[in-house]
């Protein structure tokens, strides 16, 4: 998977490194600001109220 992505990044080496970093940052941001806030209430970690 990672090898496939690396082989398909266009441009010379330095450009590929920049592209790879941008991809990683993008995925992390997607997780942090979209996926985790959505998933977190569904997980049994942090309920603090009594019913």
């Amino acid at each position: 998977m990672y090898g496939w992505i690396w082989r398909h990044l266009p441009g010379p080496l330095y450009l590929r490194i920049i592209e790879a970093v941008v991809l990683v940052v993008g995925v992390v941001a997607l997780l942090m600001f979209v996926v985790f806030p959505w998933a977190e209430p569904k997980l049994p970690f942090n309920n603090v109220t009594t019913q």
Binding site: M1, Y2, G3, L31, M32, F36, A39, E40, F45, N46
Partner: peptide
């Protein structure tokens, strides 16, 4: 086998990131 290994590593990283999110980012 390599794809499976990479998937496992990726999931491990996602779980670690979730801990970072839960404890620091929030």
């Amino acid at each position: 086998v390599r794809g499976f290994g990479e998937a496992l590593i990726t999931m491990g990283m996602v779980v670690l990131l979730f801990v970072v999110y839960e404890v620091y980012v929030t």
